[in-house]
Design a binder for these strands. Structure first.
Lengths: 220, 220
DNA sequence: CAGATAGCTTAACGGCGATAAGTTATCAAC
DNA sequence: GTTGATAACTTATCGCCGTTAAGCTATCTG
């Protein structure tokens, strides 16, 4: 008779301990995801690693997409924390924009698979690609909104920039979009073509941040 | 007894007419691709539309990826032509950069599925995602190099800018990469989130081109 | 007319995400 | 302690997918 708790025992979970199984699934999925990428991370492989049957996963996640989005939201928490830290320690709004960009790029290049899933549509289900579909950005309980959450933080920072008296070349939301698109372009390119002989990766990140920061403020 | 030629007859092709079947496959694949996107464009559906069995496709294409890349190369020809036209009619190098950006964005938003396939990794096979993989950009006969071809044209234009006496803030290749990354960020974002309430799509494109054009030249 | 072979077929393999239906262990209530 | 509800999980299966193997047939060449 073992003395292991339900969380570590290899067999069936006790009643009410299902959430520990859910965590085990997420843990195994993350390992496989990092080892083998999205396409190769199959429901069956995850189930095998956890030590349960494949259909058992569907007790904890509606489908594969929900599982993956739950994974991403977990990872995106780290970026949100980094942004919190910036807002806590950096006062100057324009400097916040730059620090945001650096944290964003660093995160994307450190978590390329999650980044692809959220920002590069590695998985986009057909249902979301239909014309007229509304992004569920207003429901923070839905999994997979990590990206929208991050973006909304940038919008807030750009509003702070404007409120601080800096004259912007474009409306604040347009500036936020331009900032995001610029740094996203850098990150997406490096993730997409990791072996392309980019001239200078650090310079590309800093250069894009310079260009964007300079480009959104009205000169004079 | 019909008088249709081999190209329009419904039955088996005559000897030596296989290439017409190949064209029919590409045509059907393109239709399906535009109607239903990448994932839903299956080998079996393409074969059905052409009126042949699924394995028959493998007489003309090594695998699904090769078929899709052949499709994309065909479409990318239009962008290459647009760039040719710009180089033919626009003399000022910096103006060429801007016109390139406009043509590029216009193309991407007009052909979002092909753009995703080539520049956003909607298909990236696992074999290409391994660390250390070299991009086969130097083999123009390989299908799927449309993207690299387009990028190399931008690099050439930036070299022209530098040769024309304009002082650049960064090396010419870095500037080309920054230009591409900026406009790619805009296009990728709009393709990825087509229903996001972007503040002003035209302004985003023009704004990014302004920002980049201004950002890569040394002031003074 | 007799091969040769381009063009195509049917059948099948191993994999995928997902569902249906049944089984078993656990717990609360009596 | 027995019972009944049910959480946790299983086996079997479905309908797809890309792809391959093996064979057939119409057409062309000599």
């Amino acid at each position: 008779m073992t003395v292991f708790t339900a969380a570590t025992a290899t067999g069936r979970k006790r009643r009410g301990e299902g959430h520990t199984r859910r965590d085990e699934i997420l843990h195994a999925a993350k390992e496989l995801f990092l080892e083998q990428g999205y396409d190769s991370t199959t429901i069956r492989k995850i189930a095998d690693r956890v030590g349960i049957s494949a259909p058992a996963l569907y007790l904890y996640f509606r489908d594969k997409e929900a599982l993956m989005l739950a994974l991403c939201d977990q990872t995106f928490g780290h970026l949100i924390e980094a942004i919190d830290e910036i807002e806590r320690t950096v006062a100057e709004p324009l400097e916040r924009v730059r620090r945001f960009g650096e944290a964003y790029a660093s995160f994307g290049l450190t978590h390329p698979d999650e980044y692809r899933l959220i920002f590069m549509g590695a998985h986009i289900p057909e249902s979301l690609r239909k014309i007229g579909h509304r992004m569920p950005t207003d429901d923070p309980t839905r999994p997979g909104v990590g990206g929208a959450l991050v973006f909304s933080r940038l919008v807030a920072i750009l509003n702070q920039v404007e409120a601080s008296g800096v004259k912007l070349r474009y409306p604040a939301d347009t500036c936020a979009e331009l900032c995001w698109m610029g740094i996203h372009g850098v990150v997406a390119a490096m993730i997409m073509k990791p072996d392309f002989p980019w001239s200078n990766r650090d310079l590309l990140i800093e250069g894009m941040l310079d260009i964007v920061a300079k480009g959104i403020v009205r000169e004079g």
